[in-house]
């Protein structure tokens, strides 16, 4: 464990908490993409199956359980409890166009052709594009509540911090994982224009408005 990965995991945890608080406090999931939340649940489910047979550390196990519970909890809030506030007309990204290519690529490019390894690889590829429906929704509505932009900033920062973790591990621990690194860079790049808007607008107290 290193400071970059710890900060990354905490940023990730904070993002998930901010989202749950936003939905619970405002009793609304307006501006949030349920499609992205479904993709995140698929990512965590396919990646954390090793909870059953591999124990790394208490921290690792607890965080995996928290991420799984929070992602399914968010889906429950969005599609059941506060279903009336779900923006079904704008949340129209076809996630099958993200799931299928990730699955196909995982079958072709992986470290080993074994079920758990393929599922892990699939979850890495899917996570790199899982935010697209959310960014698509923000671009369609043209704006985002400031708490939603804080959520996105934390979520985007988590994988950006992981990139520093991978650089650190390459030099300090002599190992790397190219699949995770390439997918992590793609994932972070997708947030770039959002990061720009967040830093130039939201941090100045303005609302996040995308140029129409």
């Amino acid at each position: 464990m290193n400071i970059f990965r710890l900060l990354g995991d905490l940023s990730h945890l904070l993002a998930i908490i901010i989202l749950l608080v936003k939905i619970w406090k405002t009793r609304s999931c307006a501006g949030i993409s349920g499609k992205s939340q479904i993709l995140f649940a698929v990512v965590y489910t396919s990646r954390y199956l090793d909870l059953i047979n591999a124990f790394i550390s208490p921290y690792n196990t607890i965080m995996k359980i928290v991420f799984l519970a929070a992602s399914y909890g968010t889906i429950y809030l969005m599609y059941m409890k506060f279903k009336a506030t779900y923006d079904v007309n704008h949340d129209t990204f076809r996630i099958e166009f993200l799931i299928a290519p990730a699955a196909v690529l995982a079958l072709i490019v992986n470290h080993a052709f074994e079920p758990l390894e393929i599922l892990w690889t699939f979850s890495i590829y899917l996570e790199s594009v899982a935010i697209l429906p959310q960014l698509f929704l923000v671009s369609k509505t043209g704006e985002a509540e400031s708490i939603t932009s804080h959520y996105l900033f934390m979520l985007g920062s988590y994988r950006a911090l992981y990139i520093f973790n991978w650089i650190y591990r390459y030099y300090a621990e002599n190992h790397y994982d190219l699949i995770a690194i390439v997918a992590g860079i793609v994932q972070t790049v997708l947030y770039c224009d959002f990061f720009y808007l967040y830093i130039t607008k939201v941090l100045k107290g303005k609302k996040l408005q995308l140029p129409a």
Binding site: R5, D50, A54, I56, S57, W120, N165, H175, Y176, L178
Partner: peptide, 10 residues
């Protein structure tokens, strides 16, 4: 540098 094998990251 060897390829990362154990999955110790979240």
């Amino acid at each position: 540098k060897e390829q990362n094998k154990e999955k110790d990251e979240l």
